[in-house]
Amino acid sequence: MKILVALKQVPDTESKIKVADTGNTIDQTDLKWITSPNDEYALEEALRLKEARGAEIIAVSIGSEKAKDVLRNALALGADSAVLLKTDSVEDPLVVARALSAFADGKNFDLLFFGHKCYGNDNGCVGVMTAELLGLPQAHVVTKLDISDAGFRAEREGDSGLEVIEGGLPAVITAQRGLNEPRYANLKGIMAAKKKPIEEIDCALSEAAIKISALTLPAPRSEGVRLDGDPSAQAVSLAARLRDEAKVI
């Protein structure tokens, strides 16, 4: 079995976001960078498949030189090789999906794993777009996955309940929190990763379909009123304000 895991490097979720002087992107000064959390579930699922069935895992990231950290971490966790599709920042998910599908096309992957949405752009599109571009079935926002020789059976949370999706392989799976508990890299893995190669490919990007013309920070919320008194008085006062001021009941 041959598995691709797509990983994105994003600012730590605890980061305060500041807008850069250009006005349409974030200020990267002082940011700590991590693997996008949903991508960790994607990688972990691939690692578990490798342990259960045997598989070759190729970790892929699109980004600048520093995205190698994400790939090195994937190698330390058990990915067999890693590829950096080297480019400046890309904000259009369609451009990313085109680059990934161009990379994956013809390489006979049985499974392509993505996080269902990367923290940052919050598009939740790249995995699904890649599936369409490669003509593959998809299971998006997956919280449980079974792989058999016949194909996949995945569970995802739909608006009216838990959806069970079935399809054949090869397939694109996008991972959601709940799918598994990602492991941490151990020293042995970290040492072994140093010997594994990270291939660099200069990535030619297609023309963007969307572009961000301005990035702004939302107006900060201000503190409202604190309600005093004993619990009963506080509750009665709140209920009255919710009815009369907020008009939500």
Binding site: L94, D122, G124, M129, Q138, A209
Partner: peptide, 23 residues
């Protein structure tokens, strides 16, 4: 951007080569 909307829209965009602004 329901569960179906989020699932189908990126496929449609990729199919049509159209820009997609999500959510």
């Amino acid at each position: 951007a329901t569960s179906i909307g989020k699932d189908a829209a990126p496929r449609i965009a990729a199919r049509l080569g159209a820009g997609l602004a999500a959510d």
